[in-house]
Every structure is written in C-alpha cells, then in structure tokens.
Design a protein around this nucleic acid. Structure first.
Length: 797
DNA sequence: AGCCCCGGTGAAGTC
DNA sequence: CACCGGGGCT
C-alpha cells in the first residue's frame, strides 16, 4: 500500500473511498490520472476481480496508458483484465455478444460518418428531396442528437415539438428520413456510432436478464471526463451502477468542451441529485503549472456562471507572465511564433517536444508549418486526414467489411465496380431499386439474381454473379483463416494492388505503400494476444452452449485464431488521438486543436489566433451558453502550460480567400492584467486603432489590396457588417451583441439592400435559420439572385 | 468508362 | 482559397 503515501490527503481519500457513489471534481493538473490509477489498483488489492471493474475513458489511448500504469502497481495480468476503454469500444464489444437479441447480426458493421452521410444521400434521392435543403451533415446531426437523447424514430415522428421544429425549418420530412435511415442501417446489419450507445440502452431496457447480468458483473464503475458524457451515456452508467452504486465519476465542469456532440454538463452538475449520499471531493491543488498560469486561468473561468465553486491553487513558483504576441497578419503570426520558440529553445537548451501550438481550427496550422520549415524545426500535426480515411485504405477496408458482413450496402457500393469490372451506374441503380423495393441488401439481390427478375443482360448478370461469388468466398476465408491471410488474399485476388501499380506517379506509389502499411498493421494485430475481455465473453457464450455450431465466435474460441472481423472491430473504434501514425517519441513541436490537447501538458504553450470570430468562434458568439463553452475551451488551452503560456493574434487574416481585419479576442481582456505582459513591456493593452492610410505600405498591405474585392480598405463607406472591425481593438464593444447578427437580422422581406457587385436590389424572400439565412433578391441590374446573408456583406439602403 | 473542367459551396470540435 | 460533385467530352 506504499503507493498511497504518494498522494495528498484529498487524493488519498479519493483513492480509498471505494464503496458507494463518489464524485471527484478534479481541477486541471491536479493529478487526476494518478488518483484514478491508484484507486483502481487499490480496489484490486482489496480483493476485487479486475473483470468486475469497468472504467470508461475518453480515448483508447488514455485507457492504454492508464492500464500500463496500473500494471506497474498490481501486475500486467490484472491490469489487462480490467474492462477499460471508451464508451463506444466497451459497449460495441458487449453488443457483439448480445446484438442478436436486438435483431442485428453479431458481426454487425460499424458505419463511420462518411458511411452515414452516404446513406442519407441515397435516402434523399429516393424521397426526391433537395440535398441543399436537407444537407446531409445537418440531417445527420439532427438524427445523432435525437439518438443521444434516446429518441428513436418512432418517438421522433410522434413528438409534436420535433415535427413543428422541422416544419418551421422547411424540413418536414426529417422524421421520415430518420426512419428510413434507421431501417437501412438495420437491413445492412450496421450501426453508426450513436447506435452503439442507443442500442446498448435498448438492450438494457428490454432485456432485464441482460441488465442484471452486467449489473452483477460490474461491481465497480469509474467514469473519467464525466463532464463530457451525453444523456445516452448517462443512462447506461446509471443503469449499470444501480445494483452496487459503487460509482465513481471524475471530471471538471470547467473543462466541458463537447456539447456540440451532445455532451451535457448537467450530468456532472446534477450528479448529487441522483445520488444524495454521494461523497464529493475537490482536487484543487495544481501540480502542473506556475502560479501565474493557474491564477490567470482562474480569472478566465470565473466569468462563467454555470460551475462548481472551487479554488484551484498551486505551490509551484510564480513563473513568467503570460506573453501577448501581436502580428500584422496570419503569415506573420506563423513566423513570429516560430521565432519565439526558436529563441527560447536556444536560450534554454530545450527539446522541441517542450513546445506546443494550440489553435481553434485545423485550418490555422499552415502559417506555423511554414514558419517551422523556414527555421528547420521538426513539427508534428495532430488530427487532419487520418490513415484510415484515405481512399485506397477505405477501398481495401470495404472488402474486409464485405467479407464479414456482405449486407453492408455502403461497402458494397464502394467496391462493386472497383477495380472496374464492368458493372456500370445503370446496373447499380437497377439493383438498388430492387433492393429497396424488397427490403433486401444489394448482396441479397445479386446473390439471388434470378429471383428478382432484373432487366439486366446476360453478360452483366454474369459479372454480378461472379462478384457475389467472390464476396462469398472472402466470407469463407474470413471465418477460417487469420486476419493476415484473409487480408492478403483479398488484396491480391481483387486486383487492387495491380490497379494501384498501373502508374508510377508518386501519388500512386504512396498509395501502394499505404496498403502495405495496412497489411503490416494486420500482421501486427494477429501477433498480439487477444484481450482477456474477449476470452471472457467467449467463455460466456460457450457456457451458454450456443446451439449454432457455425457460430463464428464459438469457433474462434476453439481455434484461437484472430480474424479480420476482430481487426475491423478494433480499428472502427479508434479515436483520432489513437490514429496518429507518427512515432510518438520523436522530438518535435506539437501542433493541434485545443480540443485535441485535452489531457496533455507542455512546458511552453502558444495559443494562437486569439481573435473575435475565430476564438471565440463566430458560431459561439450567437449564444451565451456557447460562449461559456468557448471560454472553457480557452481555460483548457491555458491550463495545458507548465512554465509559460503565450497568447497570439493577428490583425489581418485570410478567411475564405479574403483578407479580413481582426479584433483581438475578448478572452485576452478577460484575464486579470496583472498576469499578462504586452508586447511593449507594459501591463496594459496598447491603444491599437487600425490605421488604414498612414504608415508605410507593407508588402502585406499591397498583397491584401490587390486581392481584395471588397471594401475593407475604405472605412468611409463602412457597412454595419464591417463596422465592428474598424473600432479600436480594445474593450469597447466586447459585451455588445455582434453587429453581424444585428445587420443580418435587420433584413426582412422587402428590405432594400446594396451589394458590391450587383448594386441595389429588393429582398423578395428569406429562408433558413439564422445564421444561415438565404435571401432571394431582385437586383435592379443583376437580375434575381439567391445569397447567403452571412457571406453576402449586404448593406441596408 | 474515365477524365477533365467548371461552378458552386463551405470553412469547428468527434466516437 | 480549396474541395467536391456534376456534366460533358473523349
């Protein structure tokens, strides 16, 4: 038990309080992971089986690292036996063994967002709906948030509020699209990410024996990052914990930054209502950062209204003040930050890994990359297009998926004619219609062609049959051989590699390399042991004496072969943090979004692009609660820093190809100025009126003037839209509602407006929801146009 | 069937 | 500006 002595009294209390509900509010850098690992180790040492402990983390990486640390305390065998992972991966694993109760095959496919969007597009086609009105991404968001709130399509269709909302937003068919979407996925034997949680809830709700089984099994439940759980996850946890109530949730309401995907901060704020006898502990001592950083962060978060009272403090040194960097343009920001890093690195003899650049949006990385390249400093970008998103990889994976589940229509469409085998669009259309009409999958149709009487010539029918036979043969191999053999076979017999090797362009060569890399990932996969959880579940199945002798999992339990099916399960649930292929140990500067930086720490942190409309983002400015979330995001960013933080902004920045004047972010002003150091060395913001005419014309200005097609450089004619950018960059209007919004809202039907290009016009009609209002305008000269108000920069005449 | 060019459109964060 | 999808051409 000596390791418990390494904890401070509150931490230790948290680790030793193992029975009953416990809520740990853990401030940034307060040693949360340490407490969690010690707590779990402690539970095991007290005699609990690791199989009875369920620990839900935010990323698989976090789970992996925590397991490794627990392994050091209690031994790897016990650590490996823990049920630890993301909500999605843990419950996907359980669903594999219970899905048939819900009518899904146990080898169901997990659809990613691209798959989902594809399904929506097809539905829109069959319903003859305009995909500009029913934007797939919006439709999907709507469906997703319904599912995260446990609203199935039947409830959705019978809910008057949803129906009214959808009619009001000109999308009365949304409920029907939801229904069709769900039915298509079911037919394809597929679940999307939200279904994994939704269906887990259905399972626990409708099958009391299953609920009891898992309630009994999980005697200890821990949930990390509880502030970012959604309703669906909340209900799962509540159900599973109902028996023992040994439930420990850990989180920091100040770091809740995922409401856009349904996370509900109320889950943590209301925890004590659900469990009145909860033990509440506050970890308030920060071990990560200097006093300046901790105090500055406190002053930021104090502006929020919804939060637990807490007092984060540190005994670390005072440290350097937070430095403000101001650049003329986004490009200059890149050089300035790169130079600043270079200087500190040289002066203090630090490794590159001591520095991180955090931004609001991925698109901001470019300027910094250039800066680092000029100075020859190695860097690494987190996020972006992941390996598994690449076209050639998705093609190969589609074959893998078909081998496992031939009814997976999205994969079927992807490769039915890739590499080309003479199955054209019109043929695909015909069989798609047949499939939809008969509520069958595409595979079912082509595998039983003569039953469906398609109007297809004999030659094409033969090709379809051949393809169906190939898919079937892949299926056989997939169940009998290991993942690597299957993958090899599929890649070779489909001719994908041949297709990629046709041309020797650098692009194609890198594609071949990617496919080879995928193969070696499969190889690596079969060489690792299967997890104890899989064995446990399989054992469970065997004990239940599943009668079906062809049962895939029973077979695997016998042979011990790791199949392609298991490989796909694993990669379908990787989080972006897990997908980074770059080697982690190389000494590089890290560039990432603030969201991606959650849970990480760096000695020197540069938070860049601190400008109104960028951070806080334009979208967040519309809504007070969004602004609070944005502020929490800023809090997360600042608290990543150990030694020093830098805040950088640019006065001009290219957005959508146009130069835009920027105003320093209100967040800078919100920090108590005693913790800040401005560029001129003072502790007060410099008066920075934007000077349009005076001063030498820099090359930047020339550049901007040339490419600008809007009136940014003529303040005299400033429209309401532009006015905001012309005000002094100090406090003045940071509290006021954005002028953008007002300008947009002031436009009604019949309003006379002026447009840069089209001249004067009259608004005929408006449609869509703010801020995406589209206006139909009759221009005196330019005729009738449809314009999006948020882009159109209209002036009211 | 495949390629190219054009025009339109979008630009936050993610399992 | 960068990307995507559609349409048209070969």
């Amino acid at each position: 038990m000596t390791y418990l002595d390494e904890l401070n009294p509150t931490q230790r209390e948290a680790a030793e309080h193992t029975e009953g509900p416990l809520m740990i509010i853990a401030g940034a850098g307060s040693g949360k992971t340490r407490v969690l690992t010690y707590r779990i180790a402690h539970i095991i040492e007290k005699g609990a089986s690791p199989f009875s402990i369920l620990a839900l983390t935010f990323t698989n990486k976090a789970a992996r690292e925590m397991k490794a640390r627990i392994g050091k305390l209690v031994g790897d065998a016990d650590a490996k036996a823990l049920w630890m992972g993301t909500f999605h991966s843990v419950f996907a694993r359980i669903l594999r063994f219970e899905a048939e109760k819900l009518g899904y095959p146990k080898n169901f496919t997990i659809y990613d967002t691209d798959d989902s969007k594809g399904v929506i597009k097809e539905i829109l086609k069959t319903f003859n709906l305009d995909d500009k009105v029913y934007k797939p991404s919006l439709v999907l968001n709507r469906i997703s948030s319904a599912k995260n709130n446990l609203i199935g399509y039947k409830q959705y269709l019978s809910n008057p509020t949803y129906m009214t909302d959808d009619r009001a937003s000109q999308k009365p068919m949304l409920g029907e699209v939801y229904e069709a979407y769900q039915k298509r996925l079911f037919r394809a034997g597929a679940m999307d990410f939200d279904d994994l949680l939704f269906n887990t809830n259905v399972l626990l709700r409708d099958f009391p024996d299953v609920l009891i089984k898992y309630q009994d099994k999980f005697k200890y439940i821990l949930v990390d990052e509880y502030q970012d759980t959604n309703f669906s996850q909340y209900v799962i946890v509540k159900q599973l914990a109902a028996r023992y109530e040994n439930l420990c949730v850990v989180g920091d309401d100040a770091q809740s930054i995922y409401s856009f995907r349904g996370a509900n901060i109320q889950n943590i704020l209301n925890f004590e209502k659900d469990y009145p006898d909860v033990k509440k502990l506050f970890l308030e001592q920060n071990y990560r950062s200097t006093q300046n950083i901790v105090n500055a962060a406190n002053s930021i978060i104090s502006k929020n209204t919804e939060q637990f009272e807490k007092n984060v403090f540190t005994h670390n040194g005072v440290g350097e003040k937070i430095k403000i960097l101001c650049s003329a343009t986004d490009n200059e920001e890149g050089y300035k930050v790169a130079n600043s890093i270079f200087n500190i690195k040289m002066n203090m003899q630090l490794p590159n890994a001591a520095f991180a650049i955090l931004y609001r949006t991925n698109a901001q990385s470019r300027a910094f990359e250039e800066g680092f390249r000029k100075l020859n400093i190695p860097y690494r970008i987190y996020g972006g297009v992941s390996f598994y998103q690449r076209k050639e990889i998705k093609d190969v994976l589609a074959y893998f998926r078909l081998a496992i589940n031939p009814n997976d229509d999205q994969s079927m469409r992807r490769v039915i004619n890739y590499p080309a085998r003479g199955i054209g669009q019109s043929t695909i259309d015909k069989i798609s219609v047949l499939a939809a009409d008969n509520d069958a999958s595409i595979f079912t149709v082509i595998d039983n062609l003569h039953d469906f009487n398609p109007e297809i010539n004999a030659g094409t029918a033969g090709k379809l049959k051949d393809f169906a036979a190939m898919v079937k043969s892949f299926g056989n191999i997939a169940t009998q051989q290991d993942a690597f053999e299957t993958a090899n076979h599929i890649i070779n017999s489909t001719g994908i590699l041949r297709d990629l090797n046709k041309e020797k362009t650098p692009e194609e060569i890198s594609r071949v390399e990617n496919v080879e890399e995928l193969l070696s990932a499969v190889k690596g996969f079969i060489e690792t042991e299967r997890t104890p959880q899989e064995e446990e579940l399989k054992q469970d199945i065997v004990e239940q004496q599943v009668p079906n002798t062809e049962d895939l999992f029973a077979q695997q339990a016998d042979t011990g072969i790791k199949t392609i099916d298991e490989f796909m399960q694993e990669i379908a649930l990787l989080t972006d943090a897990d997908k980074n292929k770059d080697d982690e140990h190389a000494d590089k500067i890290s560039l990432m979004t603030i969201h991606a930086s959650k849970g990480l720490e760096f000695p020197y942190v540069y938070i860049v692009g601190l400008e109104e409309n960028l951070f806080p983002s334009q979208m967040a400015l519309m809504d007070k609660s969004d602004l609070e979330e944005e502020r929490r995001l800023f809090y997360v960013a600042v608290t990543r820093a150990e030694k020093q933080a830098f805040l950088s902004y640019a006065e001009r920045r290219f957005k959508y190809g146009n130069p835009v004047f920027c105003e320093a972010s209100r967040f800078i002003d919100e920090i108590d100025s005693q913790y800040l150091e401005y560029p001129d060395g003072g502790d007060k913001p410099k008066e920075r009126l934007v000077d349009f005419n005076g001063g030498g014309e820099t090359s930047y200005q020339k550049n901007y003037t040339k490419t600008s097609n809007i009136d940014l450089l003529k303040p005299k004619q400033a429209s309401p839209v532009l006015k905001r950018n012309l005000v002094s960059t100090n406090k003045i209007n940071t509290q006021a509602a954005p002028v953008d919004a007002q300008a947009i809202k002031s436009i009604k039907e019949g309003t006379l407006v002026q447009h840069d290009k089209f001249g004067n016009g009259t608004v005929l009609a408006l449609e869509g929801d703010f801020p995406n209002i589209k206006a139909t305008i009759q221009f005196d000269l330019g005729g009738q146009k449809q314009l999006l108000l948020k882009y159109a920069k209209l002036k009211v005449v």
